[in-house]
Each structure stands twice: as C-alpha cells, then as structure tokens.
Design a protein around this nucleic acid. Structure first.
Lengths: 214, 214
DNA sequence: CATGTTGGACTGGCCGGCCAGTCCTAATTC
DNA sequence: GAATTAGGACTGGCCGGCCAGTCCAACATG
C-alpha cells in the first residue's frame, strides 16, 4: 500500500482546529478505533459529514492531528529549554522544565500511545513519528551541550549518549504518570533520578563527593 | 457500572489456551477495538461461537487474558531474579536478566499498552493492573535487597526508592524497544544506565563514608 | 449423558464513507 | 446598486458493511 497523497488542510480554519482538538480529546479518551467519527463530530459540535469535508478519511484526520500535535509538543519543549544558561545547576533546572512539560501534557499521553501503535501499520505516521523523536533527541542533546557549556567535555557520558538515556527515562516517567495518579510520589523518583544524573555530571572522581538528595 | 461477575473459565482446556494466545496475538497486532472476535477465532482456528461458549463477552476475554498474561510475566521475572546472590556484580547482572526478559517479550508490549488503556475505563482491569504493578515493584525491591545483601544499607538510595526508579526506567526501555527496532543502540543506552546505577551503588572507594543521620 | 466443538443463520446497531443540497459571503456583471 | 455567479463551509440522511452477540441443530468423545 503506497503512501496516499492527501489534499492540504486549511489549518487556519477555526472549525478545523475545533475538530482536531475534539479528535485529540476523543482518541485520548477512547483510542483510535474506540472513538467513532460521530463521537468526534459531537465533541466538536459539528456535523459528522463536515469531518469528511475537511479530511479525506479517519486515517487522514489522524495524520494531520499527529503533525499538528508533534509540532506543538516540540515547540513547547524548545520554549522551555531556550532559557538554559551554562552551569550544572541550570542544566538540572532544565530537567525540571522538561518535567513540568511532561506533567502539563500528561493527559495527552494516551494519544501518543495511539500514534505509536498506528505507526506499526501506517508508514506516513511512522515516518513523522521518527522525525519527531529525532527532533526531541536533538533538543535534549543541544540542551545538554548548552546547559553544560565547556563542562560538557568532562562528562562521564558524552552528550548524545546522555541525551539518549534521558529520552528513555522521560518516556518511562510519562508512562508512569499516565498509570499512576500520584504525581508527588513520582516526583520524588524523578528527584532521585536527577541525583543520579548529577553524579554522572561531576568531573573525574578523584575526590568523589556524595550528596544527599534534595 | 458495577463489576460484572463472570463464570470461571477452565484454563486447563487446551482450546481455551489457544484462544487466549490468539487474542494476545491479535490484540498485540491490531489493538483491542481494532481486532474483531472473528479475527481472533480465525487465528485460533476455532469457530467464532466457541469464543462465546467459553467467554461471556469480548471484555471478559480481555480480563481473563490480562490475568493469565500478568501471571506469566510475573513468574518469568521471578524466575530470572531467583538466582541472584549478594554482590554488586550479580546485582548488576540481575539487571541484565531483566533486560533479557524485556527483550524477549518486546513484541507483546502493544498488548500491555492496550491493557493500560483499558484500565482507564474498566475497574476490574484497573484493579488487576495495580496489583500486578505492585508485584513487580516488590520483586524489584526484593531483588535489590537480596542482590546487595548487607551492602543494601549503604546505598545512597534506599532499596524501595531505587526499585521505583528502576521500574520507571524499565518502562521507558520497554517503550523505546517497541518504538525502535535497533536493539543494539538501545542496549548501549541500557549499559549507560547500568553505569549510572553502579555509581549510586559504589560505596566510597577508600575510606568508609559516614551515613546520613537516621 | 456431559462437555466440547462446529457451522451457520440471524439481529440490531454502529461504523466509515458518500452525496445531494443549503447557507453565507464575496466577487463579478450589467 | 441590483442581479448573478462562484465557491467554501456545512448539514442531514442514506448506504453497504462489519461488528458483538444469540441461537440452534448437529456431532464428537469419553
């Protein structure tokens, strides 16, 4: 099955945005197959046929929403990491920024899971997902390099590998936030994780110091 | 909606097992709503009506499969952690065991995602999922305590908190294994993670450290 | 005879998709 | 400046099809 080519969607149209928001809400709540187009139309307070006017199919709606959503998330992360200045403290502070971003968007994680699942069967979704993941990776790596400045060279882990580790860990935290309503307990685990990172950031362990977690 | 009470299912029946395996395969491939009962029946090479003979409904099938599957996973993890003997090296080796378990069952992760999603809407699924997560947490904590023996007291992180951190991280690795077909790259990230853990495990290299006040 | 299994007919409902047609606004024409 | 045209936005209703679930007659097997 080759990649279908869809007509471009007018994203400036306010109703289109309402539909996209409704789809995000419904798919987050009930999953892609679990939510019907009627459900989405009702949520957007719009006739079901209008969905097919703006979007060729349910799949097309998913693809467009994925594009919009990943763009939004990437922009949010970029915004939060833009104020980082070089020092270990601010580098760890940047981690807090990322944490806040995750918590703020925690209810949308089920949609992300849905996109991941769809990426198994849809090449367009797959391609965009990989690009998005690569972008997040770059943002993390740049965040590390910027945040540590000249210190970056003395890491026990080179920035790209630290970034990869961060990305995995952050996915884990996202997932557990989705599972576990107790944010504070998870926050403590995140602080523990930050402590671990701090250990790895400290320069060559000639005189190792041990810190109590804050 | 109160919890429905289902007639017990004869799990010794071989055909029932075939159906459960088929459901696992189909739901892993297409998701809960995405796979029809006919599809599952075909996969199990069984008449569709037989599904309704053994299980009251699609939901019932999900609940039973979740029970069987989580029991299997827990048993597998328990088996892999049973040989741990006290020392830092074997404690890290136990991590490798868990890694192998994750890699071995990576293709079933989409089903786990499906269960997580279902837990949002189904109290029976939710309850069992929480029990399962709690069991995994205990296994990890016991693995840490057993693996480190008397060393456990000298951790910079008490075992329960290390276990929580491990659980989050392992979820992250599971997720990325699902996203990323490149196991070896992720394996290196996992090794980096192990190094980080090792840093937290190592007591002060030469002179014994003063413990934090109780 | 109980349990397990098949295969098919059947239903009521929801699904995604499609279409004919309305409404509104803005440009175009006379 | 009234009439006409064009086209985007939007609707209600319909369609064929698949879905979960029901029922049953038949048959195996011990």
């Amino acid at each position: 099955m080759p990649l279908p080519h869809y007509k471009p969607v007018n994203l400036d149209n306010q109703t289109v945005q309402r539909i996209l928001d409704a789809a995000l809400a419904c798919w987050t709540r009930d999953g892609y197959h679990g939510a019907s187009l009627k459900e989405i139309a009702d949520e957007a307070k719009v006739a079901k046929s209008l969905l097919h006017y703006h979007f060729a199919s349910k799949e097309h709606l998913l693809i467009e929403l994925q594009a919009v959503h990943s763009r939004r998330v990437a922009a949010e992360v970029r915004r939060r990491l833009s104020t980082v200045t070089p020092s270990v403290a601010t580098a760890l502070g940047a981690l807090d920024q990322v944490w806040d971003a995750i918590v703020a968007t925690r209810d949308q994680l089920p949609f992300a899971l849905e996109v991941w699942r769809a990426s198994l069967q849809n090449r367009a979704v797959r391609a965009r997902l990989e690009a998005f993941e690569a972008e997040l990776f770059s943002l993390l790596r740049e965040g590390i390099e910027l945040g540590l400045g000249p210190l970056a060279g003395r890491l026990s882990l080179p920035p790209p590998r630290l970034a990869a580790l961060l990305q995995v860990a952050l996915d884990g935290f996202s997932l557990r936030l989705f599972l576990d309503p107790d944010v504070r307990r998870l926050r403590r685990t995140f602080d523990d994780f930050k402590m671990l990172i701090a250990l790895a950031l400290e320069p060559a362990p000639t005189t190792p110091k041990r810190r109590r977690p804050a």
